[in-house]
Design a protein around this nucleic acid. Structure first.
Lengths: 338, 338
DNA sequence: ACCCTTTATGGAATCGATTCCATTCTATAT
DNA sequence: ATATAGAATGGAATCGATTCCATAAAGGGT
């Protein structure tokens, strides 16, 4: 405990202490080439005693591999992101990779910036969960020329792990219709988000048309991803009720929106599901415990994360230059809100 | 688009293209030393055109700084972890640092392993959120000799950001007592977790003793962190009711446990809070939307993450060798479960 | 005209690993 | 005995940056 600002040990020092060359130490470290048992033991002993850890920077500089994966997500600390990263981590850690995490905090500009930052850190691959897919972003990705997987949003020219948002929205809407609901409202998010904003809305519209139901423009509301905005979206819908016809069903593009909507309905005294049915998407933890429990679709984000990780690893380790797209279907969860 | 497996550009190439030396390019890159306007412009132009990004490995090898912070958390994708990391990221990204994330997945052994892994990656500092604080772990941390902050659990000899678990538990228990509850049960977690397992239990016991209330051993149950185990813990408590006296209050050491408990009470027909009051800790997202909404304590994890990040940065950038301990108090949230 | 400071630039060493290549020493086969 | 392959080892180049140092030109003061 005497040495305060103790030097960083290097392979050279280990070599000297074990009376071998750096080459030999390196061989021991990497289990490569010929090393006599005696030499190996001496080296291992010194390493053990000193607590020497080789510099990954030096190693990476030489080998061009870092065993680090760059992950860009829109917002840290959301359920979806957490599950995704968790799934990725399960696969990556198994293969000795670690995750360098960056969050764009919903600023599309940052996404592009981080891509090049990650490249400069020589990550072995990148996984991006984008929200807004701009031409600029696509161009930025093209320029990377390294193993890459996009999650959640379909990005042309690269590997993707996406959900079938169109179909999921169709199913959740159809559920309402089959339940006998006819006056169905829709709470969505801005169309800058291709997957959630555009596709899920399209799915709703498609299902409504298929069943020849009247789509009321004034009951199509744009919200954001928060519970509170779901609440106020529902509020706005009820304000726009004219001629006594109130909605008897609401398809919300996310669970949190749905939960906000339910909250508002409760306060105004409308009974869910007796008078009005609600569906969401995402299988948020919340969805199971709100009153009434929410009918939703589990997107199985962990699985998506795992898939993305596997595809990326295939590109990295087997140098496969392919681009593969996996479409995940989700699992319907029927609960009482219907 | 012709060059398929295009070479990685180096500072040497940029130098040649701009007709200057590597030294000059480096000066432009780092805004240091003297560079004529003309030379600077030429360099910048080449960088722009080629999309050159300098190798961080080479840079870090030379400068001994990586601008990467290693973060070890028990489990990715939980609410608490998410919030913590989010808070850290807010501060770090502001100063140009990124987070290398590793998850011990609740294996104490891995925690130690990851510490040395992170050191080998030459991170500039480490933040650890431990669950089980073993002597081995403490020894491992001592050996690191680098900027370090522990979150959530008090670890001797290093900087800490901790919650006042003892006091929080006292408060939540006292709330039940002041509400007039006398037969209070307790659902905790294993004592290998010092903060949650030991301190929160101690707080409960202290408050009970202070008010001279009878502590029934058979109503002190050990659960884990899941909702479902909270459910079965409550079940076990009710099985142990003898002589007609049923609990009229339960202090659960986490919100998820509390939510599981409430779930079970609902199913057995007991009314919360009319017949039995429940309190939790953690201000889980869920807590606001369950029925009835849960009285809990917000630990403000983002703030904890921010604090930890700030302390670490102080150690890194100002080379302050201090150890600082911040105790966060949490914010009581009164809701209907009481 | 001379000295000194400021500006501008590049050569070369350095960081800590890996890896190619050459060398030496054994052991086995002929 | 001798050629030959395998085992063991180390020297030195290399990866891509930064940075110390030397050098040179330009301007300023006396």
């Amino acid at each position: 405990m005497s040495e305060a600002d103790e030097l960083m040990l290097t392979i050279k020092e280990i070599a000297d202490m074990a009376n071998v060359s750096r080459t030999t130490v390196s061989r021991v470290l990497n289990d490569s080439g010929y090393v006599s048992i005696k030499a190996r033991e001496r080296v291992l002993k010194v390493i053990e005693e000193t607590g020497y850890v080789p510099s990954q920077h030096a190693k990476s500089l030489r080998t061009k591999k870092s065993k680090v994966i760059g992950v860009v997500i829109p917002k840290l600390g959301t359920e979806t992101s957490g599950r995704l990263v968790n799934g990725m981590n399960e696969v990556f850690s198994q293969y000795g990779y670690q995750i360098l995490l960056t969050s764009s905090n919903l600023a599309p500009q940052k996404e592009i910036e981080y891509l090049s930052l990650l490249k400069s850190r020589q990550v072995d691959g990148i996984i991006l969960t984008a929200t807004n897919v701009s031409d600029q972003l696509i161009a930025g990705i093209r320029q990377l020329r390294m193993p890459f997987v996009a999650v959640g949003q379909n990005i042309p020219g690269v590997s993707n792990v996406v959900y079938d948002d169109l179909n999921a929205a169709k199913i959740m809407t159809r559920l309402l219709i089959e339940r006998g609901r006819k006056n169905i409202a829709f709470i969505g998010v801005p169309e800058s988000d291709q997957a959630v904003g555009v596709l899920r809305k399209q799915g709703f519209l498609d299902s409504m048309k298929e069943h020849c139901l009247n789509i009321r423009k004034e009951w199509i509301i744009e919200s954001d991803f928060s519970i509170s905005s779901g609440y106020s979206a529902m509020e706005r819908i009820m304000e726009r009720v004219v001629g006594g016809v109130i909605p008897d069903g609401v398809f919300c593009v996310t669970d949190r929106i749905a939960i906000g909507a339910i909250q508002h309905l409760k306060e105004t005294g409308l009974k869910v599901p007796q008078q009005i049915s609600i569906t969401g998407i995402g299988a948020s933890d919340l969805s199971k415990y709100v009153e009434p429990p929410l009918t939703t679709m589990d997107y199985e984000n962990e699985k998506a994360g795992q898939e993305a990780a596997k595809i990326l690893l295939a590109q990295i380790e087997r140098n496969e230059d392919f681009q593969k797209t996996v479409i995940l279907n989700g699992r319907l969860i029927r609960r009482d809100s219907l």
